[in-house]
Design a protein around this nucleic acid. Structure first.
Lengths: 153, 153
DNA sequence: CTTTATGCAAAACGTTTGCATCGAG
DNA sequence: CTCGATGCAAACGTTTTGCATAAAG
C-alpha cells in the first residue's frame, strides 16, 4: 500500500516538485476530510503566505490527472478534493451520505462484503459491453440527515 | 407508476402553476438526455421567447426540492438535470459512465439483479446506523471511453 | 386582493487564462 | 540555461439576488 506520493512518477510525467506543491500534497495527506480549493488555500497560506489560489487549482488539476485525488461535487457549487485511497492508508475506501437540507457529508464505510464483489462484476461488465475502462467510481446517497429530520418543517 | 407531474402536490406546497413552469416540465418530460439549465433555456425560448434564464433556474430548484428532478455534475462546471425515474416511465433507473477525457456520459442500465437488493440493504443499514433517510442515490463510474482509448496518447 | 412568479440587470461565485517573472532541474 | 511553475489581475461561465412588475389563485 502506497503511503506517500510517488515523486518519481510525478517527475517522469514532466512535472516538477516545488515548495508549493509539497505543501498542497501535505495538506491533503493530513486532511481527514474533503477539502475545497479555497480551504486548502487558507491552510497553505499559513505555511507560505505568498502562495496563490491559482497554484492550488493547478496542483489539484495535476493530482487529478495523475489519478492521485478524487474530485467530488456535493451540490454546493464548488468541488471538493480528497486523496485517493490508494495514496494514504488511513483513507479507507468509502462513499458518502449527503444531506439535502444542511449539505453535511457523512462518510459511509460499512460495506457489506457483497459490495466489492458487485462493483468488480459491474466494472468487468462495463468493460466488456462498452469498452469503457473504469478508473474510479463514486456512490452517493442523498437524503435527510438525522438532525435535519428532528428540526423538520 | 407516475407519468406526469402531480399538480396537486405542487399546489399544496404553495407553488403556482405558470405557463413558464409548464414549458420547463414538458421539456424535461420529453428530454431523453440530461439537460443543462442553458439548454433548457434555449428550448424554452422557442416556445416562449420572453422567458428568462432565471426562471429556468428557479423552476429547476423547485423541482429539485420537490424531489422530481435529479441534479448531476459531470465535471463540466455546470449542472445537468433529469426527471426522476419515478416521474416518467420512459426514464428507467440508470447510472452513468463518465469519460474523463472527452466528458461523454454513457447511461448504464445493465443491472445485475443483485444491485437493487444490495442498494435496498444499504439504504436500510444507513437508516438504522445513521438515522439518515435516503431519497436518491447516484452511482458513477469514471474512466476512459472506448473512442478515447483508441486515439490514445 | 394577496401572494408568489417573472424578467431584467447586476452581483456573486468558483474556476480558468494571459502574461511577466521565478525557480527547479 | 531551459522549460515548467508561480502569482497577479483580468476574464469567464454559471448561478444567484434585488427589485419593480405581472400573473396566479
Amino acid at each position: 500500500m502506497k503511503t506517500s506520493f510517488s515523486y518519481k512518477e510525478i517527475k517522469e510525467k514532466g512535472y516538477k516538485i516545488t515548495r508549493q506543491r509539497e505543501i498542497v500534497f501535505d495538506i491533503l495527506r493530513k486532511a481527514n476530510m474533503h477539502l475545497s480549493a479555497d480551504e486548502i488555500y487558507i491552510k497553505a497560506k499559513s505555511r507560505n503566505p505568498g502562495i496563490g489560489l491559482t497554484t492550488i487549482y493547478r496542483t489539484l488539476e495535476m493530482l487529478y490527472n495523475l489519478g492521485y485525488v478524487n474530485k467530488y461535487d456535493f451540490g454546493e457549487g464548488r468541488a471538493r478534493y480528497e486523496l485517493n485511497d490508494t495514496m494514504v492508508e488511513t483513507c479507507k475506501h468509502h462513499h458518502h451520505l449527503v444531506c439535502l437540507r444542511c449539505n453535511r457529508v457523512i462518510d459511509y464505510t460499512d460495506f457489506v462484503p457483497q459490495e466489492t464483489e458487485l462493483i468488480t462484476k459491474a466494472i468487468s461488465g462495463i468493460s466488456r459491453k462498452y469498452g469503457f475502462k473504469v478508473q474510479t467510481h463514486i456512490i452517493q446517497f442523498y437524503g435527510i440527515c438525522k438532525e435535519c429530520q428532528k428540526r423538520k418543517k
